[in-house]
Design a protein around this nucleic acid. Structure first.
Lengths: 334, 334
DNA sequence: TAAAACAATGAAATCGATTGCAAAAATCAC
DNA sequence: GTGATTTTTGCAATCGATTTCATTGTTTTA
């Protein structure tokens, strides 16, 4: 650490060639005599030479680094509770490493478009992958207007100006609703904040399916104060005190579903027998909770791959279409 | 994105000063006339100027970027299942952002010391924070020998040559054992791989506490094939088939604990009545599982802060002592 | 008011790579 | 063996900042 690392000039001297030749040899340029290349590689390896990436990035157009932003803002002052976002992160990380791109995990920069743009004009990163759309629609549109390359995990509508990758939210909602109708559920509860595009779409899908029912039903809505377990637990407990218990629940995440089940549980209600519940995401914990959660699955590795693929397309100025990943209902014990 | 961003030279010209003056004004150097500084800042802001960080890093000694390595290697080909590691990541992320350090989330580089060192000599990062010690003790020692700044989340012994931050594993084990003895548990099961330093220490603590019992007891050990839910579920189910059920269990993580409880559950055993269980980490889910888990708490935000603090000390060549964070038993319904 | 002291600014070198262009070396054709 | 091609190689410019040192401008002091 203390002593200065060896430079390309040093390698050139040691291999009796010039700096540009070393650069070409290491960069895999075709016009280098095989024998020369070998000698250079040998010297480089022997002395543990590594290209100074800052010098390289200064000269080149791309930084090959992509900032990934978790939607911490929804979790401020709370412990991060939803493992789904991290499964997604793992998927993106994997996909980026395959493409030899570095992943800068960005702090929650207070949804400020300018500070994001500075990372790009400061050549820190080539652009952003946002894992979570939250209520930042306006900021995303602003970033696009400023020519900042972004891709967002979330839902999209006609009004969406940026590229998104997400589950087929409408279908997800529809599948849940279909299940409820099949079992003649009448008192349906939608858990989630429909200001989020994704959740609005899910609710629309849910409504579409419910509308096929040939019997009367009610549909109500519940939101937690924030995204924490306890907020949902309490909101549900409160609801059970004041209103008749729903016989079908569609929760926007498995994590929320768990909190809600706890509340139902303490209220003496049993899954299937008293209520039916569909969660969302199929996180690893979903099939190991008791009861095992019925939920909508999203393949996070595929999601990661797709997010990265779209991002690269954005970077190369082909405006890629937004797209969705397969979205399936996984029936378990709720 | 397409058009070239404005440079410091441009700002200098626009503000009618020279480049060095701009550099000093932006860098907060004292020897700049307030009026000049203001004008420069105004021009910079107006044109959305951002310092090219690669040029800056090329010139300066530090990159102000730290690589954080998740112990993906234990999860290869499996979905990431333990939220604890991510709570830890959130803690580190928070601490780094406070110090204005960038976080490079590194891909699982196959426990190869050289590839890690290249990131440092290539001036990509200043060093590493490893979240998870796994069986990489040898590699960590090698990195230290190569003067690569590292800090590791994990346990340490006399033989440990690198700086660690972790829970007080011996104490954690001791607290669990103490509880078991208080309730006169006789057939104790330790779940975890004692090749990991942390888990070895926990087991030692457990043994120490058990040795105070004034009655005979047995202590056995169980490991899953890997870190997944199902591996632990199956290992436990298998054990229950072949041996008498333990009346006390100490699991190395809450996640493993949940899988094990599921197996016990399906075997008709009930917590407290039939067995006592202590998990580890107190992840957000622990208090919302049913039954609510008794576990050993670790404060991940504090952990993050400490990891970063130690890292900075390592970077500045003061060899900081390894240290532990407060470690408490949280009693719930197991 | 001139000399000394200090504050503010600028010229030029530097960090360590990549790349366009020109020169040198190697290969080919006859 | 000579001239025409084609490969390889090297020179020098460039990317965009920071920093040392010298210089100019401004105060202070006697």
């Amino acid at each position: 650490m203390s002593k200065k690392p060896i430079t390309m000039d040093d390698v050139a001297r040691l291999a009796n060639v010039s700096k540009p030749t070393v650069s070409r040899a290491l960069g895999g340029h075709p016009n280098v005599k095989p024998k020369t290349r070998e000698k250079i590689l040998a010297v480089a390896r022997e002395h543990g030479y590594a290209v100074n990436r800052n010098a390289k990035k200064l000269r080149e157009k791309y930084t090959n680094t992509i900032a990934v932003i978790l939607d911490f803002s929804s979790h401020r002052r709370h412990r991060i509770t939803d493992p789904f976002i991290f499964e997604l992160l793992a998927g993106v990380s994997e996909a980026l490493s395959i493409r030899k791109q570095d992943l800068l995990l960005s702090p929650p920069t207070l949804s400020d478009a300018n500070s994001h743009r500075e990372l790009v004009s400061g050549r820190v990163v080539d652009g952003f992958i946002f894992l979570g759309q939250g209520a930042n629609d306006a900021m995303f549109n602003e970033l696009v207007k400023k020519d900042v390359p972004i891709v967002v995990w979330g839902g999209n509508t006609q009004a969406t100006k940026y590229c998104t990758v997400g589950s087929d939210n409408f279908l997800g909602g529809f599948l849940a609703g279909e299940r409820f109708v099949q079992h003649s559920k009448k008192n349906i509860l939608f858990v989630g904040n429909t200001e989020h595009i994704e959740l609005r779409l899910r609710r629309e899908g849910l409504e579409k399916a419910l509308s096929t029912a040939d019997y009367p039903y009610t549909l109500s809505e519940l939101q937690g104060e924030d995204f924490s377990f306890s907020a949902h637990y309490e909101a549900m407990a409160q609801l059970l005190k004041n209103s008749p218990a729903p016989d079908a629940i569609f929760a926007y995440s498995d994590t929320a579903a768990m909190a809600i089940i706890n509340a139902l549980n303490e209220h003496g209600l049993e899954p299937i027998k008293d209520y039916m519940l569909v969660g969302y995401n199929d996180i690893a914990q979903a099939s190991h909770f008791s009861p095992r959660l019925t939920t909508i699955r999203q393949d996070t590795f595929l999601a990661g791959a797709l997010l990265v693929e779209k991002f690269m397309a954005v970077l190369n100025d082909n405006s890629p279409m937004s797209s969705t990943i397969p979205t399936d209902l996984i029936v378990r014990n709720t």
